[in-house]
Simulated assay, not measured.
Amino acid sequence: MMAIQALRAYNFFYFSLLSVFISFLPVYLSSQGVTPADIGMLVGLGSFIGILSQPFWGMISDRRKTIKKVLLFTLGFSLLVGFILFQSSELGMLFLLVGGMYFFMLPTDPLTESLNYRVAEQHGVHFGSVRTFGAIGYASASLVIGFSVDQIGMDRLYLVYAGYGVLAFLLCTVIPDAPVSGKRLSLDDLRRFLAYPATLRFFLLILLAAIPHRTNDSFLGVYVQSLGGTTGMIGLAWFVAAISEVAFFAWLPRLLRSGSEIKMITLASVIYAVRFFLCAAVSDPLLVVILQLMQGVTFVIFYTASIQHLYSIIPEEWKATGQTVLAVIFFGISGIIGSFAGGWVFEQWGGAALYQVMAVCSLVACLYSTLLWRKEKKAAGI
């Protein structure tokens, strides 16, 4: 079980590193005088680059039959680019560096999730028992970073990023590689997978549910600041969100049964809607922080159910690529829409209006998920 322990340690520090990138990049950009609309453009551009980079690295992983080596390469370059990014302030340079981060850093997430799922499966442990350590890392790092930056200043965020990055990279060198399929890769298999109506309907559902989630990722920190919150409160918000994930990852094996994935995505979508409506209704930044407790119910159930459903319909030899397609939709396409549209709405009408729009989007996802759920029940003769 040393392999699982090493993987858990890697998850802890990798997701700590990811918290700097996801949680504090928009806050860092805002501290450099970048407007909400320009933040949306920067993140949206990065998400577009992620659409291209994630399938690229996923295909390399499948064809080379290794996840670990590709992870080491992308993680190493992410460390270098991020170290420079968090010391930069000129808008043109920020566009270039943010693009570089999304090219190298964004693909590390689906690769890590695929590694987690397949190594856990090989060793007979539940995916959640590994991924929980990532949530703990994300939570603890968010809290530490938020309050540390209040003391040392946002201009030294690059030191925190470098510390977590080096530890994650070193641990990546000792984790096991994922078991790979011995089947020959076939482009025809991938075409059939992507052309299958059930797959297309599933990916549309992921897009609808992911847009408001990714918008929250981009603008939660900026929204808390706009209500008068400090950087420490932003870190606390992400800590609360991540620590709630830990609890639900622990309970997930009891909640998520095979064949119930669409039902659980429906549940997550309606709770997303409630969460965002409440965020729009309050004016106290501390209340927004407390509402992030709902992250455990929403993200953990939604994302894990999505992975489980995906793995039940995709050919074995394309699992890493399929995971990447899911990530392209979740982090790429939805990120572009959420960042560009979210930045524009925030600048025109404010943060409360943005969260109202996000809540409506979640309701649309809930309605569509309900239709798919009923369609599945009808097809199964239930």
Rank of each mutant, 00 (worst) to 15 (best):
M1F: 07
A3G: 03
Y10N: 04
Y10R: 05
N11T: 08
L17P: 00
S19E: 09
F24L: 13
L25W: 00
Q32Y: 01
Q32K: 13
G46C: 11
I49L: 15
G50M: 02
L52C: 13
L52A: 14
S53C: 09
Q54Y: 09
I60M: 12
D62T: 13
R63Y: 14
K65M: 08
K69E: 05
K69C: 00
L71V: 10
L75E: 01
L80T: 11
I84F: 15
L85Y: 04
E90H: 11
L94Y: 06
F95H: 07
L96K: 05
L97G: 00
G99I: 03
Y102R: 08
F104H: 03
M105C: 15
T108R: 05
D109G: 11
L111N: 03
L111S: 02
T112H: 06
N116S: 15
Y117D: 10
F127E: 01
S129C: 09
A135T: 13
S140R: 02
S148G: 12
G153Y: 13
V160D: 02
Y161F: 15
A162S: 12
V180W: 03
S181F: 05
F202S: 06
L207D: 01
A210D: 04
I211Q: 02
V222D: 07
V222Q: 00
Y223V: 01
S226G: 14
G229T: 13
G232Y: 11
L236Y: 01
L236A: 10
A241N: 06
S244Y: 10
A250L: 14
L252V: 08
L256I: 05
S258W: 07
G259A: 12
I262P: 03
L267A: 15
A268W: 04
Y272L: 10
F276M: 03
A281M: 10
P285R: 04
L287Q: 13
V288T: 13
I290C: 05
L291K: 04
M294N: 10
F299G: 03
A305K: 10
H309D: 04
S312Y: 09
E317C: 10
T324G: 14
G332H: 00
G332N: 04
I336K: 00
I337E: 11
I337D: 08
S339W: 06
F340G: 00
F346W: 06
A353C: 08
A359R: 01
A359M: 06
L363N: 02
A365K: 06
C366V: 00
L367K: 06
L371M: 14
W373Q: 12
R374W: 15
K375N: 14
E376Q: 15
A380M: 12
G381W: 12
